[in-house]
Design a protein around this nucleic acid. Structure first.
Lengths: 234, 234
DNA sequence: AATTGTGAATTCCTTCACAGCC
DNA sequence: GGCTGTGAAGGAATTCACAATT
């Protein structure tokens, strides 16, 4: 096992591989080759071997990877063997939708608290029974509830302030939905999901006068080419 | 103006620049240099000039960029001068949260329809008054309502089927929230936002034994270094 | 003097290709 | 024979650095 620095593109893919392995395991399959795995995602098999190669040797030549083993290894590498406790700042529609999103438990994430500054919401609980606290209680609740991941789901103008608060409270990993360029301290990681930017990027695509678009498709299976893979962040 | 192929990293950034320009315009500022703009996002000024350079020459040497002009140019380049009509498939919590998300109108996007297969939801309207149709009516509603962008907010197992339906209906731009590796036809662009992967990537970061994390911060302003920029997709 | 636009240099990421192993 | 692991090659994205321009 080396200790180079791993790109986020790699960790994103590891997460995707892991999800796939979990499904294969559920289907009772025991081994998989990098080639088979690659076909699932329209990517190059060497990419998968390289990604795994940063962390060790997990495969068996001539056979491929034992799914149960690789699953355990990736879970460990991604730090998903330890539970994570999530606090969501902003109990609006997006915040509450995320709080109730099932499918995070599989990854060992539990949403334990929401925060809002609307007094009428405080003390309430979401459908799923998650309590809503005052934003000014962030520091205390983060400590009491042992929160290690924060989600920012507030309007852009409040986002930097909220980020500062959660950083001060000691949270080092933040998923941000506010469309704002945030500045984080060293040692703190902010990952931004920007819906407007995603849509505007799609708009650019639509605005392109492209040579021949489907309507004339030679064969109904002219699927994704190489250049499209990374556009799906793979 | 050239006609090279533009990377999605560039179009994402253009969207971010445009948002910033809109704010600067609102503040009554008239010109901005690539350097000033770059500081907003912790990125290199050459990056901004290169991004713009793919589309033409918009700046004035010695002065910078006229904000109103560049704003108009970027709006045009991103295809935001024409309105876009959005249909959301999946009227669950996420779908309805997105339907009511304000801030898309600024970019000339309007959500005009939701789709679901839950009969109890059909005919209903969301808080904002957007009608909910049967998923099997996608083709008809896309035509009637002139929908050009679809959002997939259904469970992973249904996502490929839904994608096939919206592609058949002629939609060429899709924003996907389902954690599934989708295959699209040529000429159709799918952009996936994967919350689980985003969180798992944060988990990896937390699992890293990092040398010195903040607690000992020399000066409270030891902010984002170069390596962190792209982790925020900038 | 200030700032753009852009080739050249650099860094980062992906793919190739094959030796090594099962 | 089939498949992994990986050095080397290739390609893409970023940054440098400076001539050109106002």
């Amino acid at each position: 096992m080396k200790r180079e620095k791993i790109s986020e593109l790699t960790t994103n893919r590891l997460s995707v591989y892991l999800r796939c392995l979990n499904e294969l395991a559920l289907a009772g399959i025991e081994t998989v080759s990098s080639q088979e795995l690659a076909e699932q995602f329209n990517l190059n098999s060497a990419q998968i071997r390289k990604d795994l190669g940063y962390f060790g040797e997990f495969g068996v030549r001539g056979t491929g990877y034992y799914i149960e083993d690789l699953r355990a290894d990736l879970t460990k590498i991604l730090g998903l063997d330890k539970p994570h406790r999530v606090g969501i700042v902003g109990a609006g529609r997006l915040g509450t939708a995320l709080a109730n999103y099932n499918g995070l438990d599989k990854s060992n994430f539990t949403v334990v608290a929401l925060f809002d500054n609307d007094e009428t919401k405080l003390g309430e609980r979401t459908g799923g029974g998650i309590p809503i606290f005052d934003v000014n209680k962030i520091a205390k609740v983060v400590r009491d509830q042992d929160i290690d991941v924060a989600v920012i789901a507030v309007p852009a103008r409040a986002a930097q302030r909220v980020l500062n608060q959660v950083m001060t409270a000691g949270v080092k990993a933040i998923l941000n939905f506010a469309p704002a360029p945030l500045k984080a301290r060293l040692g703190v990681k902010v990952k931004t999901v920007d819906l407007t930017t995603s849509l505007e990027s799609l708009s650019y695509f639509l605005a392109q006068p492209r040579a021949a678009t489907l309507t004339h498709g030679k064969r109904s299976e002219d699927f994704m080419d190489a250049s499209k893979r990374k556009e799906q962040n793979l």
